[in-house]
């Protein structure tokens, strides 16, 4: 009987596939890499060959410059490439634009490396597609039963209500520059907010990239170059800019922060946030456990996050599982 570890196993550089000779989301420069999505801790510069979705490759080029890798192989969702009998297919993970699960097939065995994922609707990227498999490799960023994300549309409604109640104040919304920012803007548009949204300079390039890939974000403008103090307007910025001197130009800002961590009051209080918004691009506890129950794979491997609670959940259900304890992947929105 073939062991799945022969197909894929953890190494200091990341998950490695010996028969195909490639790494998935390596944290160190390697000869051949498959990248699940464009967040900096998963997509690093300096690899030899990189296979990823065209959107992810575009994100990497925007962040690191065109020469971020020796050679690239764009791989559309559903397209399969094979090498030495190992087949690779990318399918949507629902995390951010271009995010993919890597489906690895070899000698009749299927391992799915989901990367970071969520199961909720996101207007900026296609939804997660469940793929039956022998081994499902999952993250566990929010792997504790306290993490139950509310409906993102309700959170956006709270932001708009605050804007209505405090029209003399700028609403400064901290959101991760890749993915979260664009999703929040798209959700605001769906909620009927059609005014110009001002954005921090650090996300202008990524907003333009999303637009190029067909995600309509409506009228945007630079917050830094805006005239006046933007009272009554929404300004989106990276979380680190919330308490930065940059924020002093605005009118008595209401600081909002979009993150799954905002679910826990002590975390929100520690950040000094006035309007915590629980919006996350990672699966919450229910999404993680529902996904495992739905796929019911032969084995669950947990890459990073709070693996002990998810292992406990698997043990209670007689679901074989193990923690890979991969290092180098960050918690969402930490700065």
């Amino acid at each position: 009987m073939l062991k799945p570890e022969a197909l894929l196993h953890p190494t200091p550089a990341g998950l490695y596939c010996p028969p195909g000779d490639f790494h998935i989301d390596p944290v160190r420069p390697v000869a051949r890499a498959v990248i699940t999505h464009g967040h900096a801790d998963h997509a690093r510069a300096g690899h030899g060959h990189v296979a990823a979705t065209p959107q992810t490759l575009d994100i990497m080029a925007t962040r690191y410059g065109e020469a971020f890798a020796g050679a690239v192989r764009p791989l559309a969702y559903g397209e399969t490439i094979a090498r030495d009998g190992v087949e690779i297919t990318l399918v949507p993970a629902g995390h951010v634009l271009g995010s993919a699960q890597v489906v690895v097939r070899w000698k009749g065995m299927t391992v799915v490396v989901s990367g970071d994922y969520k199961r909720r609707r996101d207007p900026t990227c296609p939804a997660f597609e469940p793929v039956p498999c022998d081994v499902f490799v999952t993250e566990a960023t929010f792997g504790l039963p306290v993490f139950r994300h509310p409906d993102a549309a309700d959170e956006v409604a709270r932001l708009l209500k605050s804007l209505d109640q405090f029209p003399e104040r700028t609403h400064l919304v901290g959101a991760y520059a890749l993915g979260k920012a664009q999703r929040v803007i798209a959700l605001l548009r769906e909620a009927g907010h059609d005014r110009t949204i001002h954005v921090h300079g650090a996300m202008e390039g990524l907003n333009a990239l999303y637009a190029r890939h067909g995600v309509d974000l409506g009228p945007l403008a630079s917050a830094t170059e805006a005239q006046g103090d933007l009272a009554g307007e929404i300004v989106i910025c990276p979380p680190s800019a919330l308490g930065d001197r940059w924020s002093r130009r605005f009118a008595d800002p209401v600081s909002a922060f979009c993150s799954g961590w905002m679910r826990v009051r002590a975390r929100a209080r520690q950040r000094g946030v006035e309007l915590p918004l629980v919006i996350s691009d990672h699966a919450d506890w229910d999404e993680l456990t529902d996904t495992l129950a739905e796929l019911s794979p032969g084995e669950v491997w947990i890459t990073h996050g709070r693996e002990e609670a998810l292992l406990r959940w698997c043990a209670l259900r007689n679901q074989p599982a193990r923690a890979l304890a991969l290092v180098g992947y960050e918690e969402e929105d930490e700065d």
């Binding site: 504790l144 039963p145 306290v146 826990v264 002590a266 002990e308 609670a309 406990r312 959940w313 209670l316």
Partner: peptide, 12 residues
């Protein structure tokens, strides 16, 4: 599960 509850309480 009381164990999962305990870990949750420790965290929050």
């Amino acid at each position: 599960d009381p164990v999962l509850f305990g870990w949750s309480y420790d965290y929050v």
